[in-house]
Design a protein around this nucleic acid. Structure first.
Lengths: 384, 384
DNA sequence: GTACACTTTGGAACCGTTTCGAATACGTAT
DNA sequence: ATACGTATTCGAAACGGTTCCAAAGTGTAC
């Protein structure tokens, strides 16, 4: 394998000159530059990244920890991150959790040990106050480039950037939407703890605002997977009384629930309305299409990547907590509750009036593209 | 940051001695070893991976390219790979395709440029004869540690190991299963080209063996995603005549199809039988549970990792094409075709006899665990 | 022709390991 | 006490880049 010395010999210049051609290239005549580039091409020379990393303290490697691989929400974030780091000539390392342990410790380790130049941590459903986070805070304080990313990461005084989206606000809209259509028994499917706890909290707050009693029996504890949504929905059929709507912690859970309901012949939204969160591609492809709280996933990924790159290149040295805007997208999976008649309509509600021909639900067409590239609501910022 | 010199000074030994304690540790007295280890702990010393990589030509980094992130099939493979590389103190880099380009080129590059010590390429649905593969073959010939992994990777004379599973054989069983239950119009959902082409071929061969005409109208070209399965199944409803069974290129497609069918009120398997391939966890959780061709995913990952590790450590220097066994798992999503009566039964077939009470389908209980850790059918092998 | 400023190039030092030949310490046989 | 073999330990030389300082080259003004 050709080294920089071979190139220097071939081009009849000093190794320092070759290095200068390689990086930036200032203070080199065109003539010598061409000679060097010719030699590089002839020898098929590629700089040794280990040597480079050793001398410059830059591995040009970024890690991105993901709580799970199979949720398309994360795929969109990865895409956004990549859009920033690929042009900057950084390589991206994806880290998923082991079967036994969480993904984070291993990659905290990689950061502390200079395998990677920076770390984007996508917090999972577990508490942000666990051991990993403590290690993360410590590294952040020491100045390692870290960005936290995810649904509802909350930290009062972060030692790194926190990028999130305003899901609770979007969820508030969603609850409003359901209540307006007469839903009073609204179930929640999802974890009770961790970074998505804010969603459950938003659900509760919204119910309280509308003076609807919060029934623990309507809160279904589960994971964030399709499977979990499926099995929670199955549980509904062991009950004598069912809710009229389900709010799911994310789209995968919502779609899992839809699958189970449709299998049992429950028609959506006539008999049951369903709301998801994320707006993954699948949400607009299933039938009925899924009403969901849009998150600007790629924009979150891009923003996280830009902040991280800024820290690595020492352009940025303040920490921000940034929340991108999030908004309800009404599609086909939500409709009026069974028996619901608008209050302006004085008729008594028919006993079990739901059927295929019942008045078609209002379908707001939201301009989705408008969200795709925005989101710039900086909430807090503090100096370095 | 403490370096090996700091440790040597603190422990009052030479740096070479510290290095020996770090690696293996032969030719060191217990006393000095303890002194060194004490110093390492006191200083919080961690070897610099860049320096290590530079000197030893080992980055201790392995890349694994995945065609897509969201299919659980790949998650299982990742898990198997990890089981081998984590104990060996290698770090795993996951690579997913960009929105614009394939994942492979970037990571071929990483291998050629010594960012990583080895590469496991999971071939995607695209042809194995494209540009990437050619670059891969070249690197393989040059002796870079590479293992190819995936459903139906075929190469007569590989310059690296190829790990696959005998899906065509399993699919043959599945077709047999369907034909025995009276199915004559069996659709295929999946890509027509690429490494999964062997599946379509197996489907065709099986039909031919049973003297069933192969109708192009029953071959539904699609992707390998849930969405694709969903939309192909939707297309069925635009036809006046539908098949009685669907064979899908993988479980995600099969489950997508199930979703669409159930939404339209088609009961499975009474009106439509469905067969998947892979046996992802979801397959045994949906209702009805999915009949599928099991692939030993973790075992494939482990085997690929072991071969790769062997090459990296220069223990192995031959190339093998290894196919692990794959087998049909019959669950609930397949049953007798509508109108089907076993030939031993002389009764004329009733006009549209399918209903809930119709004779329960035969349900083979396959001992799944038996597959989990085996699969050792070496097909071809050639010396270095 | 000489002094001076400025650009380009050369060459050495350094980054933090591993490795290997040389040096030392130690134990045993003579 | 001396010689010798073996088990440890030392210390220097890589590995392949980047960076910085000094040297050389070039052009302009006097």
């Amino acid at each position: 394998m050709a080294s920089i010395r071979d190139v220097a010999r071939q081009a009849e210049v000093a190794i320092g000159t070759v290095s200068r051609v390689l990086n930036g290239g200032s203070h080199v005549t065109d003539l010598t530059r061409q000679r060097v580039q010719k030699a590089i091409k002839e020898l098929g020379y590629k700089p040794n990244p280990a040597a480079r990393a050793l001398r410059s303290n830059r591995t040009h490697l970024i890690a991105l920890t993901l709580p799970e691989l199979t949720n398309p929400f994360y795929a969109a974030i990865v895409e956004g991150v990549r859009q920033v780091f690929e042009p900057a000539d950084f390589r991206l390392v994806l880290c998923s959790p082991n079967s036994s342990n969480n993904a984070v410790p291993q990659y905290i380790d990689m950061l502390a040990n200079r395998y990677i130049d920076g770390l984007i941590v996508v917090f999972d459903r577990f508490s942000a106050a666990d051991n990993n986070s403590i290690a993360l805070f410590r590294l952040g304080r020491k100045g390692f480039p870290i960005v936290a990313l995810g649904p509802g990461v909350a930290s009062d005084k972060p030692d790194f950037d926190c990028i999130t989206s305003q899901v609770p606000e979007g969820l508030k809209e969603a609850m409003q939407h359901l209540v307006e259509m007469g839903h009073r028994e609204i179930a929640y499917f999802g974890p009770l703890k961790g970074v998505v706890e804010a969603r459950l909290q938003a659900y509760r707050t919204a119910l309280a605002r509308h003076k609807i009693k919060i029934a623990d029996s309507l809160i279904f504890r589960g994971e964030t997977t399709l499977e979990s949504g499926f099995s929670r929905a199955e549980e509904l059929f062991q009950r004598q009384r069912r809710p009229t709507a389900i709010v799911a912690v994310n789209d995968m859970v919502a779609i899992g629930a839809m699958m189970a309901l449709q299998e049992h012949g429950v028609s959506i939204p006539e008999e049951m309305s369903i709301v998801g969160i994320d707006d993954i591609p699948l949400a607009s492809m299933v039938h009925p299409t899924l009403t969901t709280v849009f998150q600007p996933k790629e924009a979150m990924g891009r923003l996280a990547a830009e902040r991280l790159l800024g820290r690595i290149e020492k352009r940025i040295n303040s920490f921000s907590a940034i929340a991108l805007s999030s908004q309800l997208i009404v599609r086909e999976s939500t409709g009026p509750a069974p028996n619901f008649r608008p209050t302006t309509n004085g008729q008594p509600s028919a006993a079990s009036a739901q059927n295929e021909t019942m008045g078609k639900r209002r379908t707001l067409k939201v301009e989705e593209a408008a969200f795709k590239d925005q989101g710039n609501c900086i909430q807090r910022q503090r100096a370095d």
